[in-house]
């Protein structure tokens, strides 16, 4: 069930702007779209309340950006601040990933969502609000105008205007994405330290150990 981690180095794609602020994970994947005990099959519910005019009958809303060419195939999403706030549901990330999104660019992210992205091979990029808005304005003009080039190794994004903007990412997060590493396997390399911590801690805080 664990989706294979895809390595992330560079990505060139048209970027789809959904420029609302505070887009929460309930909007990305509504609760009722999370029907099974699985990480798969969620993309059909992605942004369901916005994407469909009739959710039950799956009638597409032709105005919604991801229903329009060329944005339907966008691998990059642009959004307003606090993207992915709200519920911790990782389904939001699984739905984005299955749909084909590999990178989200926004001025800020919900903390849990950010971590979930990294663990699933999606790169969250924080750029200034003005920059994201400029990308969005360019994207609205059409396909060629909306291409962004993301380079995780160099930690920069070249926007539709040709300007290059650098971004920050924690070294561990970057390593995980670039190498496509499984985080559990990575941590278990430190198993000696974990077991040593537990032995020492047991003596100091016995009440913790049920």
């Amino acid at each position: 069930m664990t989706l294979a981690m895809q390595k992330f180095t560079t990505l060139s794609s048209v970027a789809a702007p959904i420029m609302r602020v505070n887009i929460d994970t309930d909007a990305i994947i509504p609760s009722r779209e999370m029907k099974g005990v699985t990480k798969d099959g969620l993309s059909v519910g992605l942004f369901a309340n916005w994407r469909y005019t009739d959710v039950d009958a799956r009638v597409e809303n032709p105005d919604f950006i991801l229903n329009r060419a060329p944005f339907r195939d966008a691998q990059i999403l642009l959004s307003g601040e606090n993207f992915g706030c709200g519920s911790s549901r990782e389904h939001a990330v699984w739905a984005l990933k299955e749909w084909g999104i590999r990178c989200v660019i926004a001025p800020s992210f919900g903390t849990i969502f950010y971590g979930n992205c990294v663990r699933n091979g999606i790169l969250p990029v924080v750029l200034s609000e003005d920059t994201v808005k400029a990308f969005a304005a360019a994207a609205e003009k059409g396909a060629e105008a909306g291409i962004c080039i993301v380079d995780l190794v160099k930690q920069d994004v070249t926007g539709p205007d040709g300007d290059t903007h650098t971004f920050d990412i924690a070294a561990a997060d970057k390593e995980m994405l670039v190498e496509g590493l499984d985080p559990i396997g990575l941590t278990l390399k430190q198993d000696d330290a974990i077991l040593a911590f537990r032995e020492k801690d047991k003596a100091q805080r016995p009440w913790v150990y049920l």
Binding site: T2, K39, S88, R89, E90, V93, T111, I112, G115, N116, R119, N120, A170, A172, D173, P183, I184, L186, T187, L188, D191, I194, R198
Partner: peptide, 22 residues
């Protein structure tokens, strides 16, 4: 604090989480 399901797997399997300090 709240985490995602994949981090949940990590905590269950390793008794730890790699966390960026807030």
């Amino acid at each position: 604090w709240g985490i995602g399901s994949t981090e949940g797997e990590h905590a269950l399997a390793t008794k730890t989480l790699a966390v960026n300090k807030p």
